[in-house]
Nucleic acid binder design. Structure first.
Length: 617
DNA sequence: TATGCAACA
DNA sequence: TATAATGTTGCATAG
């Protein structure tokens, strides 16, 4: 038995590493006593984060409580692996920091499914996010184990990740290669592996107490664990990538980026990714640049370059001037590099052995509770089908995308009790257009499509908390026109302003934290308290999506789900049953929110995701 | 690491 | 009283 000791909050804790079967028997004895006393914290160390890659391996499984940690050398196989597995399936109270990862690891590498583990799991990261959802950059503690431990357990809690990076470097590994390369019995590796479970075990009761002190509803905690499980199931399923399409696409886009990069070089721009170079060269060509970034540099983003290239927002010729060839080359080179590098190329490099992409779905990522997804799957270009064309439904399946209809406007109507908006949603039926309704409400029968556009801008302005200037910029209308429209909007829906003031006042009285309809804590920035309207809407929309996901599981349709995208659920469904399943998904996403109907519309595509964006396959 | 940019809801 | 655009992931560059 290897035994290591370390001070945690003034207590000497022991990290035990069984080597012989006698040692493993000791572990077993400890485990039986520990699980009588309460939940047991677990964690895994692996060769990397790419759980579904062919080279991924599980190295250790750790178990622990507040005073002892046991690092089981799973990689040794034999008794080590079977003791770890037997222990895992016997636990009826499990603490994990960021459970999704370990659920998937143990499912993939130890044959213990997340369905076995999830019912017994408390995720300390979820508890932390419900106490304070802000990232460190936003003034919060964040949800990483190290800063949380420093705050709640021991200010001197070791930085196990950072500490290991140093050890990796000293052994000739990098931060990336170290996890796979470090010898299994390296003492620092084992110590830190063990300390992580001790810290998790100590963190849990502190966060529980804090949640109780803050009066966070226990139902919300349960709900978030359910959502985390559903997201993990979708992550485990992954998405099929059309490799025969994506690989040549990545090459073609790389060539295109190179070609336009070479043209830019003729004008002295050796790196199109350097805004300073682009600005200097454009100025030398006599183009007057005026927009500035927050830091004061000249802006050369898409909004600046498109007009210089005589292109509108959809990259169509305007015919107002001679296109600047450098602006055009920079636009083309950057778009091709972005689409090729961030999407097509990345799809290929992140593939599992089965040719699938398992993007990490973080169920509680944003401070509003919104989810986030890695590998760009929330950000694929929607103006063109070329990238989404690379993502496929299963063989014999078609893609079905089901969107909530104007969910943030509906949520706003429901939360702020906006009478006339609610009436519109209630009486409007399935194809109801809130922005056309608003235009007609204000302008009467002579409302034009342009009026609709202006009031749509005003509506988004309300949901986002935007001002006249921004709405004008976004819609392309004049500030005077927008000022008038916003004033009319406020007269038509006076409840919104009143709700905003009320919510801000409530937040002030609660230490600058607004409590959402579901009991979620939404901290406000003191100088941007107006953002409360957006936070309330965004977070309620997230909870509506979460409820829809629970409904979908209850209806037995979870296996078809692939990806949540804020107000949309992407699914792969058998072609023959597509119409029926699509209708069922719509039904699961349809609900009532304080008297406002939340409705969804399913679109049935072809084999690829791109087929829902105009691709013919 | 900070900044700028580009992609989305 | 008037006023404030929200939330992400990921890449390249520059120091």
């Amino acid at each position: 038995m290897i035994e290591l000791r370390h001070d945690v909050a003034g207590d000497l804790v022991t990290v035990h590493v069984p080597e012989t079967t006698e040692d493993l028997a000791e572990f077993w004895k400890w485990l039986y006593r520990a699980r009588e006393r309460g939940p047991v914290a677990i964690d895994t160390e692996t060769t990397g984060l790419d759980v579904f890659s062919p080279v991924f391996r599980l190295r250790t499984v750790q178990f622990g409580d507040a005073s002892d940690a046991w690092v089981i050398l799973y990689e040794r196989g034999g008794y080590h692996a079977s003791y770890a597995r037997d222990a895992l399936i016997r636990l009826r109270g499990i603490l994990i920091h960021n459970a999704s990862f370990d659920w998937l690891v143990l499912g993939q590498s130890a044959g213990i499914s997340l369905e076995d583990l999830a019912p017994w799991t408390t995720d300390t990261r979820i508890l932390a996010a419900l106490c304070d959802p802000r990232q460190p950059q936003e003034g919060g503690t964040g949800t990483a184990l190290k800063p949380l431990s420093a705050k709640w357990v021991d200010p001197a809690a070791p930085d196990t990740q950072g500490g290991l990076t140093k050890v990796f470097n000293s052994l000739g590994f990098t931060k990336e290669t170290g996890w796979a390369g470090i010898p299994l019995t390296n003492p620092t590796f084992l110590l830190y592996a063990g300390l992580d479970v001790v810290l998790t075990a100590r963190l849990a009761p502190m966060l529980r107490r804090e949640l109780a002190r803050l009066d966070v509803r226990p139902e919300l905690v349960t709900y978030e664990h359910e959502i985390a499980r559903l997201c993990a199931v979708m992550q485990r399923t992954g998405l099929l990538v059309d490799q025969d399409y994506a690989a040549p696409l990545a090459r073609r886009l790389a060539e295109e980026a190179e070609k336009h990069g070479a043209i830019a070089a003729r004008y002295g721009v050796t790196s199109v990714g350097s805004p300073a170079q682009v600005a200097e060269a454009l100025a030398a060509m006599g183009e007057p640049l005026t927009d500035r970034t927050n830091a004061g540099a000249l802006k050369v983003d898409k909004h600046v370059l498109l007009p210089l290239a005589d292109l509108d927002r959809d990259w169509q010729r305007i015919g107002a001037r001679t296109p600047n060839p450098l602006a055009y080359a920079v636009l083309r080179a950057k778009r091709a590099a972005k689409w090729g590098g961030t999407y097509a190329e990345r799809f290929m490099t992140k593939l599992s052995a089965a040719g699938r992409l398992h993007a990490t779905i973080s169920p509680l990522a944003a401070r509003t509770g919104r989810m986030s997804v890695t590998d760009g799957l929330h950000q694929l270009p929607s103006s063109d089908h070329v990238i989404r064309r690379a993502i496929l439904a299963e063989p014999g399946h078609v893609m079905v995308s089901t969107d909530f209809q104007a969910v943030e406007m509906r949520v706003l109507a429901a939360l702020a009790k906006v009478r006339r908006m609610t009436e519109g949603f209630v009486n409007g039926g399935d194809e109801f257009d809130i922005h056309a309704y608003t235009a007609k409400l204000i302008k009467g029968g002579k409302a034009t499509p342009r009026d609709r556009k202006v009031f749509k801008g005003a509506g988004f302005g309300k949901v986002y908390g935007g001002g006249i200037q921004t709405i004008a910029r976004q819609t392309g209308a004049t500030e005077a026109e927008i000022a008038q429209a916003v004033a009319a909007y406020d007269r038509a829906f006076p409840e919104i302003k009143r709700a905003s003031s009320r919510w801000q006042r409530q937040a002030y009285q609660n230490g600058m934290v607004f409590i959402s309809a579901t009991g979620r804590r939404l901290p406000l920035d003191r100088d941007r308290s107006y953002a409360v309207v957006n936070y309330a809407c965004q977070s309620a929309a997230r909870d509506v999506l979460g409820q829809a996901m629970l409904n979908i599981e209850a209806a037995g349709l979870l296996e078809y789900c692939r990806l949540p995208i804020h107000d949309e659920l992407l699914a792969s469904v058998p072609k023959r049953e597509a119409a029926d399943i699509a209708r069922e998904i719509e039904r699961c996403m349809t609900m009532d929110l304080y008297g406002v109907p939340i409705v969804a519309h399913a679109e049935i595509g072809g084999r690829s995701w791109g087929s829902l964006y105009g691709a013919d396959y």
